[in-house]
Design a binder for these strands. Structure first.
Lengths: 146, 146
DNA sequence: CAAAGTAGTGGGTGTGAACCCACTATAGGG
DNA sequence: CCCTATAGTGGGTTCACACCCACTACTTTG
């Protein structure tokens, strides 16, 4: 008896279809967890960028995350309200706000990374470590070269 | 000099992040092409399901595509208006509508599959055929086993 | 020092996805 | 025949996401 939710072969044979489905699945699962604390994926991304690449002006961070500056301002409001970033006026150019990760922000980021890895373990469960590494390497090439 | 849009390493090392990004990229690109003809991805999916798995009632097709029955009804309106499916009342149960692909629908589906493969070639451009096969096999496992 | 440009912000808009309810038509069990 | 259940449909709502404009504050340039 056929599974009534089985994917049509015409779609299953499209790599991009599988990419899109599994990607959306992963995204949705993590988004649901973050939503429990009122966060969006871009809050996580913003903390990660500040941790990895150092302080940014809001403009630069918006560019990096491919977010509208006005949307990033709203995201920064929340991160600052939670005490995860400092927003300091640049004395050399008083229009600019420099966003810097706080110690609390670094701690929260570590937790968010742990949540992301939990979701990842669930999504990648069917693959063994070597296969996961292969997948990661291939996706990295797509991400860079796309 | 650092690329101002470079992805933070903390995110780049998450396979699920790459999955989500590349999947979204693929989905968006195909969606844009379909939008030129007023179509959504689920119109493509519906035609594919009818072609691969034969006629469905609207209920069954909605279940298979994980769409709300009410939303599928609207999609079926469009497909029928374009002459790509027949909607016939089931004589054994006059509540049911059986959706069947027409010859024109089969032709249009072939075109849509070709568009999907064009997008796929663009997205997978950085990979050689063997790597694409590997990626496909891994994603199939995730899709099935997830 | 006036004019033009840029950083940030508040308050919008439009869209697609997903969902949900009320309703009609039909079916089937007791 | 009545009662409950199911298929389809019309008309909504909610939400995230992406975008956009006007405005203030400040800087740079001619």
């Amino acid at each position: 008896m056929a599974d009534p939710t089985e994917t049509p072969p015409s779609l299953r044979e499209l790599t991009t279809y599988l990419l899109s489905r599994t990607g959306k699945e992963a995204r949705t699962r993590l988004a649901e967890r973050l939503a429990a604390d009122g966060l969006r994926l871009y809050h996580h991304a913003a903390l990660a960028a500040l941790a990895d690449l150092g302080p940014h002006t809001q403009r630069d961070l918006a560019t990096r995350l491919r977010l509208d500056p006005s949307d990033l301002a709203k995201a920064a409001d929340l991160l600052a309200a939670r005490g995860w970033i400092d927003r300091t006026r640049d004395p050399a150019d008083r229009r600019r706000l420099t966003l810097t990760l706080t110690a609390a922000g670094r701690t929260r980021l570590a937790e968010l990374q742990a949540e992301a890895r939990t979701v990842q373990d669930a999504v990648l469960a069917p693959l063994d470590p070597a296969e996961r590494a292969t997948l990661h390497a291939l996706l990295l090439r797509l991400h860079a070269g796309g």
